[in-house]
Amino acid sequence: MFFKNIIANFKKYSFLLQQLISRDFKVKYKRSVLGVLWSLLYPVLNMAVMALVFSNIFKFSTPGVNYLVYVLSGLIMFNYFSEASNLAMSSIVANFSLINKIYIPKYIFPLSKCLFVGINFLLTLIPLYIVIFATGTGINIYHLVLPYAYICLFMFTLGMGLILATISVFLRDMFYIYSIVLTLWTYLTPIMYDIAIIPAKFQLILKLNPMYHYIDFIRKIILYHQMPSAFTFAVCGISSVIFLVIGLVAFKKNQDKFIYYV
């Protein structure tokens, strides 16, 4: 019964979801000359800057594997997370004028943001594969398992987005706090450095970060041509489900109160 309701509800609002996502796309690219090309260029340029700074100036290197692919694979995953969680966080407050007037299931706003950035993420896979081939890294059969990591990343991000959206309704300071947290998070995730350069006792702390495991998962496949271990599979799956459930529960419990904090 409950499940049937969710399906019916979702069917009814899938058109709205689609409209919200296409709205975001139109608004994002309408006034730029290069338009949607930016989705492809942005991560590549970002990678170029990081590679320039970290491999030439700080002399970071990843023995045995290509540094460009190393950076770009971490970067697209983390960029997805940071952009989607940020947009999802502000989606409720930004749509207050709507929530205040018409009944719409509120989860639709963070969800639409995570999906919108998700489509962008899929576009960034194009430059990733171009770099994979251009650097001679090559692909392998395990690439078919990569969507598992992407789905885990999506669920984790949606969960975080729901938690952040809920908190930020009651505490607007969250927007500032989270931007600092996100900066810290970027450095605590091995995007441009190898976790091996960190002293062993701190590595454990870094490994508490789910983002590390999602990125580790895809790097195992893309760079080392290996199947990720069962442990990595489990950590990715479990952490993403836990965060999604926490997010859903926190959001559902508080959503009726949102309207008083306009």
Binding site: Y13, L16, Q19, R23, I102
Partner: peptide, 24 residues
């Protein structure tokens, strides 16, 4: 409610219609 000022009238008809719960 839910009009997006950056979109055209045509796009807003669909966006606003979706907000009001109409089908495609």
């Amino acid at each position: 409610a839910g009009f997006d000022m950056d979109l055209t009238a045509r796009e807003n008809i669909f966006l606003n219609g979706a907000v009001l719960g109409y089908s495609k």
